[in-house]
Nucleic acid binder design. Structure first.
Lengths: 105, 105
DNA sequence: ACAAATATATCACGTCGTGTTATAGTATAT
DNA sequence: ATATACTATAACACGACGTGATATATTTGT
């Protein structure tokens, strides 16, 4: 899939995709992502296994993440350059959203 | 639909739903919402007619907005108390998202 | 040894956003 | 006056996504 197409599909990105991508700024495997996202959101977001592994498949297929190695059953992923660019754009979108949401806090 | 069910369905809320709900803090009709959202996002979000009117139907059916009156063909909506509460929770969620996203800006 | 936690995979389901098409009134320009 | 663009709402079909459920297997703790 082209970067252009990836951009179209991933902006706006779901909260789930965003947190998975964010957690992969450091190398991690699926199960560790679940724990990291739970921690980042103080337990608000509990990702199910189905969510994590299907999301990883999509993100990898679209070139936003890549598997770097395997450790036994574990498959270790990391974010790609394309993924970083899209994450950055996503952060800008969230910033805009935040500025518009502040008045409702 | 109960408030409890509405909360479950609307958190996390889509960006589209959020902006429509936000724009209804002041009374507005569908077409005016399209323009308001375009303005709030500096042209980034252009809502299609299908998106706006189907979203208004869902939000009204779930009690987050209500039609207050009609002016010819125009149907004027406003946010309800339930809608305000959910909008507030949503703003809190976005705030958390923003704090986690800042490192990627 | 047994239970709980770790770890991945896959399927079916419902919801949502969007493009498209349709319809029609209103305002502006030529 | 008439054509064009803008305003305004409605309904449908489609694809993408998030999730729960289920299955399987390994490892760790008690």
């Amino acid at each position: 899939m082209s970067l252009e197409k990836a951009r179209k599909r991933y902006i706006p990105m779901s909260e789930t995709m965003f947190y998975i991508l964010l957690s992969l700024k450091q190398e991690r495997h699926g199960y560790a992502i679940m724990q990291q996202v739970k921690e980042l959101t103080q337990g608000r977001i509990i990702l199910g296994a189905g969510t994590v592994y299907s999301s990883l498949g999509k993100l990898e297929g679209d070139g936003l993440i890549a598997s770097v190695r395997e450790e036994g059953r574990r498959i270790i992923y990391t974010i790609t350059q394309t993924g970083k660019e899209i994450l950055h754009e996503e952060a800008e979108r969230i910033s805009e959203l935040y500025n518009n949401a502040r008045g409702s806090l």
